[in-house]
Design a protein around this nucleic acid. Sequence first.
DNA 1: CAGGATTGTGTAATTTATACACTAAGTAGG
DNA 2: CCTACTTAGTGTATAAATTACACAATCCTG
Lengths: 228, 228
Amino acid sequence: MHHKTNNSSEPKKTPAVAVDTLIFSVIDNKLKILLIRILGGAYKNKWAIPGGLVATNESLEKAASRILSQKAGVDGIYLEQLATFGDPKRDSRGHSVSVAYFALVNDKLFYPKTTEYYADIVWKNADALPPMAFDHKKIIEYGKERLMSKLAYSNIAYALLPKEFTLTELQAVYEAVLGKTLDKRNFRKKVQEIELVKETTHTRQLGANRPAKLFIFTQRHPRIIDIL
Amino acid sequence: MHHKTNNSSEPKKTPAVAVDTLIFSVIDNKLKILLIRILGGAYKNKWAIPGGLVATNESLEKAASRILSQKAGVDGIYLEQLATFGDPKRDSRGHSVSVAYFALVNDKLFYPKTTEYYADIVWKNADALPPMAFDHKKIIEYGKERLMSKLAYSNIAYALLPKEFTLTELQAVYEAVLGKTLDKRNFRKKVQEIELVKETTHTRQLGANRPAKLFIFTQRHPRIIDIL
DNA sequence: CAGGATTGTGTAATTTATACACTAAGTAGG
DNA sequence: CCTACTTAGTGTATAAATTACACAATCCTG
């Protein structure tokens, strides 16, 4: 970036900068995405992921956090940059470049609220999305792929689960994201062998059956490993 | 992105949008990066990677291609988006968001030229870079990691090599990028087993020794595979 | 105390990855 | 012409990782 270097032919006007946030959760063993319905303007009542413009002198991460907090009532989640989308026609109202972020949350620890900014805010199944405004379908498809591959070589699944969980729940998260079933014994062997998780002394019993041991992640910070 | 929806508290002014392009090549068995020296302004004579502002109604890829063509005399190379950098302090002259692209080229097929835009344009060793302007050091570090991991699970090495090449040359590219030596027999076994390359009927002889068979990539388009 | 439901566990077979050293083909120089 | 030099080219044995697969343990309920 060497604009303002007084060289000829630098554009004077550049596109607007926005951020959009793609929030995943696994609920009832299904991969879900948090969608909002737009209140007014050209895209009134269309579905989209939460987003908004970046202010000058505001970092992209800060803008994403601010927008989630202001518009979706969501605070303190870990955001990771996904990619940037800049097709001039992506927004019919004028050229904007959107930096997409993605986040993983556990829906039990997370309370999105409908605000004055949106007509609605709801979890939708990732494999049965309504028609989306802007290029948000593209952003979501790209994000789903990223999530699938990151699950396979990192420990980010921790962000989708509560502190303590059963191995059955962990496996269900993997299966929901990857869209395929996994072998129970091999899965359990692996996650313990690589020290992705470790067992606690606690157990949980839900039905009329053997209680399950509860596990925790050995690290709850992003980390590169090899899982599947 | 739902600005201009007449909601309160949308910023009126957003940062400028720039693109920067990180161009890699392997020359003399060393990983190199194409750097420019800035002509004038606050960063006069500092080293940087080529870049410039994006015009409204211009896509990010088009902006990157245009800038490379105008400023570095380089046309028709494959660009892939790397990441976007938006720290308000990354450019002391004002807040700009830079979408970084990265490209791989074979230096024999590629002719960067010093233009009126830059004081200089040269290949520098990736592991011995001069002090860089802006946050370009960060962009380069990030790009090097991306390159290393992509080499291991995709066929992008094709972009670093000419159409026909020897397996010794291919291995040298892998070794330069990964910064470690590889076993000759295992490497050759692998690249043929997974059909990354196939042999031609041609050979090449450089010194007073046995001529080498020439190989080509089975596909010269980006493709996901597992190599190392 | 029998039946139902979910948790939890081990081993053998296959595939993949690694370590490792010599022969083949050509040129150059005596 | 034949020896020495240089780079190309090849196979096998071992170790490690992945896959496939079935039944016993624990708890509650009726």
